[in-house]
Amino acid sequence: MTTNSHDQDPGENEVTGQPGTFLTRPFAGLGRKVVSWVNHMGAAAIFLGKACIMIFRPKQIPAIIQQIYYIGAKSITIIMLVGFFTGMVLGLQSYHALVKFGAQGALGTLVALSLVRELGPVLTAIMITARAGSAMTAEIGIQRISEQIDALDTMRIDPLKFLISPRIVAAIISFPLLTALFDLVGILGGYVSGVVLLGINAGTYFHRVQSSVEMKDVTDGFIKALVFAVIVTTVCCYQGYFTHMRTDSYGAKSVSLSTTSAVVLSCVLILVSDYIVTSFLI
């Protein structure tokens, strides 16, 4: 097969055959890249759409609960840990910045707003990508290469319904909840570094936290969390589900590459979409 495709690959001959192709080649490559990206975007959107339709099929609840367990419940510790230290470092850094203006009283405002608006949703999403997203890709990828997904097909079980839909629902439930947890633990972390360690007035801190955060900030944070939930699950499941379509590798190697690209792509898309969503919401 390899020899066959080698013989018939027109690109091979073009390079040597025509002068000047070395100039046009990068553009052709770029064009192909763009086309393939657009293809993937379309495929991922269709994939998401189909999986969303399948959410409302019967017998989904147990699967969803199981996925909430893996995506949500098992992430509590790591989210609390990361949230706490994020809050602490935020408190520490902002204190030293604010104290120059004698405005250390505004520490609560700074910590709370940065957590609720930005850091909470973004860092939560990135942490879940690392914990649950990579696991999703690897698990689905292995199921793909060991023909388990084909086996589902032969048993008339829709693989999207069975594997993807519960994960999407579970992520949509888990992301906002974990984000809320992250925010609160982060504010507590800010309290520990600002009040306990650096000696700001506790009342001022909490007063500032309470008075500065608006309902709009809270809902914006949740909207972001929901957007990230959909992006992360779609990217991770898509990469795993189409592991076998990779042209750069086969078998276990392709699962590892899919997992890597799922995590990288998820993180990039989280930050890009964060900017887009923020500019819409402001």
Partner: peptide, 12 residues
Amino acid sequence: FVVIGLLCAGYM
């Protein structure tokens, strides 16, 4: 998990 999450979200 859901209870803790809802409490946090509610508090916020």
